[in-house]
C-alpha cells in the first residue's frame, strides 16, 4: 500500500470515486433509456470544446462542458422532433466535434499539450482544482436525481404513460441528456472522451441484472465503477500502462466474464428445468 502515500495517487482515487458516482447514476439512465449512441455522440462532440478551450486559452474542461451541454440540447431536440433521422445527425455531430477540436488545436499557437490525456484520460494527473470541479458536477447530478427521480423513473419506464399523467416528458428527456453531458465532463479526466462510452454502459449493464429497482441499479453501478476504476488504476501503476485504457480493459474483461457467466448459468438452469 506504499502507493497510497503519493499525492497524485490520492487525487486519482478521489477522482475515481467522484467519477464513479456520476457513472453509476447517469450510466444507469443511459442503459435503461437505450441512449448509448447519443451519449457517445455527446462525448465526442465535447472534443470540439477541448480544442476551442486551447485556442482561447481557457480551461479545457470548461470548453468541453459547454460543447457537451449544447450538443446534448441539440440532440434532445432532434430526437424528440425527428426520431427517424436522429442517428444521422448525431453521427455527423460526433465527427464534427472531433474534427473541429483537432483543427483548433492545430491552429493554437505554441501548442504543446498532450492531446492523448483528453482522449484517453489522465487520472494520475488530476489537479486539486479539477477535483473541486468534479465534486460540484457530482453534487448537481445528485440533486437532480433526488429532486426529479419520480419523473425520470416514469419517463424511462413508460414515456407515453408518463405524458398521460402530466409529466413533461420532453423536458425530462432534455435535462437527462444535459446531465449526461455533465457526466461526460466528469469522466474526461478518468478515462478520456473516447472511452467514456464504456464506463457509462458496462457497470450499469452488469448492475441491471442484479437490481430490482432503478435506485439499486444506480448504487450497484456506482460501486462497480469504483471497483473497475481502482483495479484499472492499480494495473496502470504496476505495469506502467495508460490509466484510462487500463480502467476500460478491466471493465471490458469483467463485462465478458459476466456475459459468459450469465449465458452459462442460464443454459444450465434451462437444462435442469
Amino acid at each position: 500500500m506504499d502507493i497510497l502515500q503519493y499525492g497524485f495517487i490520492q487525487n486519482a482515487i478521489m477522482a475515481g470515486i467522484l467519477a464513479s458516482i456520476a457513472c453509476g447514476i447517469i450510466g444507469s439512465l443511459v442503459v435503461v433509456n437505450r441512449i448509448v449512441f447519443i451519449s457517445g455522440g455527446i462525448a465526442h462532440t465535447a472534443y470540439g470544446g477541448v480544442g476551442l478551450a486551447f485556442f482561447l486559452g481557457i480551461s479545457p474542461l470548461l470548453g468541453a462542458g459547454f460543447f457537451a451541454v449544447v450538443a446534448a440540447v441539440v440532440m434532445a431536440l432532434i430526437t424528440l422532433n425527428n426520431k427517424q433521422r436522429a442517428d444521422t445527425v448525431i453521427g455527423a455531430m460526433w465527427a464534427f466535434g472531433m474534427a473541429f477540436g483537432i483543427i483548433l488545436v492545430d491552429l493554437t499557437p505554441g501548442y504543446g499539450v498532450d492531446l492523448m490525456s483528453y482522449l484517453f484520460g489522465s487520472i494520475l494527473a488530476v489537479p486539486d482544482t479539477d477535483l473541486v470541479f468534479m465534486a460540484v458536477l457530482d453534487a448537481v447530478i445528485i440533486i437532480y436525481i433526488l429532486a426529479y427521480y419520480r419523473q425520470i423513473h416514469a419517463v424511462s419506464f413508460d414515456t407515453e404513460y408518463a405524458a398521460s399523467m402530466g409529466v413533461r416528458t420532453g423536458l425530462v428527456y432534455t435535462v437527462m441528456l444535459v446531465m449526461c453531458a455533465l457526466a461526460v465532463v466528469l469522466l474526461i479526466r478518468v478515462v478520456g472522451l473516447i472511452l467514456i462510452i464504456a464506463m457509462l454502459t458496462i457497470p450499469p449493464f452488469i448492475a441491471e441484472r442484479w437490481s430490482a429497482s432503478l435506485k439499486k441499479m444506480m448504487v450497484i453501478s456506482s460501486l462497480l465503477s469504483l471497483v473497475f476504476t481502482l483495479a484499472g488504476l492499480y494495473c496502470s501503476y504496476v505495469f506502467n500502462l495508460t490509466s484510462g485504457a487500463s480502467i476500460i480493459a478491466v471493465s471490458s474483461v469483467s463485462f465478458f466474464f459476466f456475459i459468459t457467466y450469465d449465458k452459462l448459468s442460464k443454459s444450465f438452469k434451462n437444462k435442469l428445468a
Binding site: V32, S156, D158, E160, A212, S213, L214, K216, M217
Partner: peptide, 18 residues
C-alpha cells in the same frame, strides 16, 4: 379521475422494476 393502460411500456425487457 382518468386511468390509462397502454398496450406496452416503452422500456425494453430488463428494466429493473418490481
Amino acid at each position: 379521475k382518468v386511468g390509462y393502460v397502454p398496450q406496452n411500456v416503452t422500456a425494453g425487457r430488463g428494466f429493473p422494476i418490481t
